[in-house]
Simulated assay, not measured.
Amino acid sequence: MIGLIGWIIGGGIVGWLASMITGRNAQQGLIGNILAGIIGAFVGGALYGLLFGGGINFEWNITSFIVALIGAVIVLAVWNFISRRA
């Protein structure tokens, strides 16, 4: 249960920072930030694993925070691209 709460809080923080970087902060709320952060953590972890080898690390530390942030920025950039075309 504690791990789930950590993912929600960490996802919210990462998603919020990523939304500020991509300029979507005013367009998405708390749930959008949490989802962007959690999905971004998985995307970033997968890309990190492909580029540098190794598996997905489910611990929160500075490296996983940066990887999750980069993944969330990628997710939001793709979302911006898709939503502009629609």
Rank of each mutant, 00 (worst) to 15 (best):
V43L: 12
N25K: 10
Q28T: 06
I56L: 15
F52P: 03
W79L: 14
L4Y: 11
V73P: 06
G15M: 00
M20R: 15
G54M: 07
I21H: 00
I70Q: 07
I13M: 05
I39N: 08
E59R: 12
A77N: 13
N61Y: 03
V78T: 09
W16S: 03
L76M: 14
G55H: 07
L50C: 02
I82T: 10
F81Q: 12
N57F: 10
F42C: 07
L17A: 07
G49A: 11
G15A: 05
S83D: 12
M20P: 00
V73N: 04
L47Y: 06
G11N: 03
T22H: 01
I66S: 15
R24A: 03
I31K: 01
G40W: 02
G44F: 02
S64A: 10
T22V: 10
T22A: 02
G12V: 03
V14Q: 00
G54I: 06
G10C: 10
W7Y: 12
I2N: 09
V43E: 02
A77P: 01
G45N: 09
F52Y: 11
F81Y: 15
W60G: 06
R85Q: 14
I39R: 10
N80I: 01
S19Q: 00
W16P: 00
G44V: 01
L50Q: 08
Q28A: 05
A86M: 13
G3P: 09
G54R: 04
A68C: 13
I34T: 08
F65V: 12
L51M: 13
S83F: 09
A86S: 14
N61P: 11
I66E: 08
A46Q: 09
L17W: 02
G44L: 03
A18S: 05
I70V: 15
A77V: 12
F58N: 11
G12Y: 09
G49V: 05
N57E: 15
